[in-house]
Design a protein around this nucleic acid. Structure first.
Lengths: 250, 250
DNA sequence: AATATTGTTCTTTAATACTGAACATCTATA
DNA sequence: TATAGATGTTCAGTATTAAAGAACAATATT
């Protein structure tokens, strides 16, 4: 009997929360019910519970629901516990100023890149909020930097999995990807040559934990004309140097 | 029959998530069970479900649990939907640079201040992460700025509620607090005179939504010697001017 | 005005979450 | 080193209750 010691109603409820996305921040009851193949009334009850707890808010005008601010408080605790953001922030600033490019910081989570922070150089004061955004491993600088140093078994799972094409430059061929990862292991840094977004190049360096496993990565990225080979090598060195004191101590 | 159309097991489970705090980011099964007066096995099942969903992670060394990064993704959606952070950030930067003080941005949530962002002036590069932190309304600049313009009924609830003393300067007397709030309504800005933290003064200005209700507040704060009366009046003006374009349009 | 389509309410039943005890691990203390 | 007291986990039975499905109310659309 493969009994699962899990609270099924809770798992179902969390799926409801996960229906909300940046693209669809507001959802109706039937919309969610269809999406999950569940009954309207069930969704209604779950949402009403979440609302009472503050995790979801109903828009009085449209009757649709959206995520509540209670989640922000939880995320604060996560961030604080991880502590990573606080530890990395000064170094990210240093890198952004030295390279005059946007500096990203992401961690490995569920076989995806989870962006934790973006720091803009003072010469480029954008304010795009990417906290919490996710991206695939195989076609981003941060992702490949981590993929290259992951346990081979886990890495192969991804390499042999679906490699969706985002641009003409995306490495959708496992063999090509493998040799790229090999080069990353040799040089110590990953290059994303417009593989995820056309016109955007990126250099990323992995960060290793105390026991030697990849835990995170830091990158700078920007418009491809500014990212020629020699510049990217220089940037990689800048990042690697800035991260030196953090390597193998987290 | 006052039947509650809520999923009780879900409400219970969310209470488990809420046990985690900055002070106690890691909790054991029995610890949570005691805190909530629930059975160990129940907590165990809930945690195991949350773990499968990625909302909670078990520390292999200590067997204790902590919140997972999945929450970050949800918080990203919240932030993005609120959009507030993105809208306010440039103005917060402006205020921080103009006053050379830390600039805070908070919203009203569950009768508390929920801190959304802190921006440090370039002359004071701290990196304290306060995203998601909460504080009482009656003894903080941001809080009083919002409390003063809340619906009277809701405000009185708080004024007549427990007014815990944080410092010798905390206004724990409802009458004193009321007259302070009256002054805030007159001047349009709130002053926190070391009421929450000794040695820290703060000036805050409320932000109003499209329908005229208080939705948020912005403040600058710092060591009391730097915050004399004339300086604070000047800071209040600076903030009010910077926020002008955002008033009554959100 | 008529007709979908939405969110909500309600009851019944089948599912399942919680209890409570037993078990397995680990960690202080004698 | 042995023992007692923690801890987290497993398990089966019962009492709870979550979900289904239909009916209702309130909008939106035609």
């Amino acid at each position: 009997m493969d009994q699962e010691y899990s609270v099924k109603s809770l798992a179902r409820a969390m799926k409801v929360l996960e229906c909300f996305s940046v693209q669809q921040p507001e959802l109706g009851v039937t919309e969610i019910a269809k999406k999950l193949g569940m009954q309207k009334s069930t969704i209604c009850n779950i949402l009403s519970t979440f609302q009472k707890c503050g995790y979801v808010v109903q828009n009085m005008q449209t009757n649709k629901y959206h995520l509540g601010t209670k989640i922000l408080h939880l995320s604060y605790i996560v961030n604080h516990h991880l502590g990573l953001r606080d530890i990395f922030l000064p170094h990210l600033h240093k890198i952004a100023e030295a390279t005059h490019e946007v500096c990203y910081f992401g961690i490995l989570h569920n076989n995806e890149v989870l962006y934790i922070e973006a720091v803009y150089p003072s010469t480029n004061q954008q304010t795009r909020n990417i906290l919490g955004e996710r991206a695939p491993l195989y076609c981003t600088g941060l992702g490949k930097a981590m993929l290259a140093f992951m346990p081979q078994e886990k890495a192969e799972e991804i390499i042999n999995g679906e490699l969706k094409s985002f641009t003409n430059f995306t490495l959708c061929d496992p063999a090509l990807l493998r040799s790229d990862l090999e080069e990353i292991r040799m040089t110590g840094y990953a290059v994303d040559n417009m593989e995820h977004e056309f016109g955007v190049r990126c250099v990323a360096v992995p960060v290793f934990g105390a026991s030697g496993e990849v835990t995170a990565a830091v990158s700078v990225s920007g418009p491809s004309p500014r990212f020629d080979h020699t510049t990217m090598v220089k940037h990689a060195e800048t990042i690697a140097n800035a991260l030196q004191p953090l390597q193998r101590c987290l």
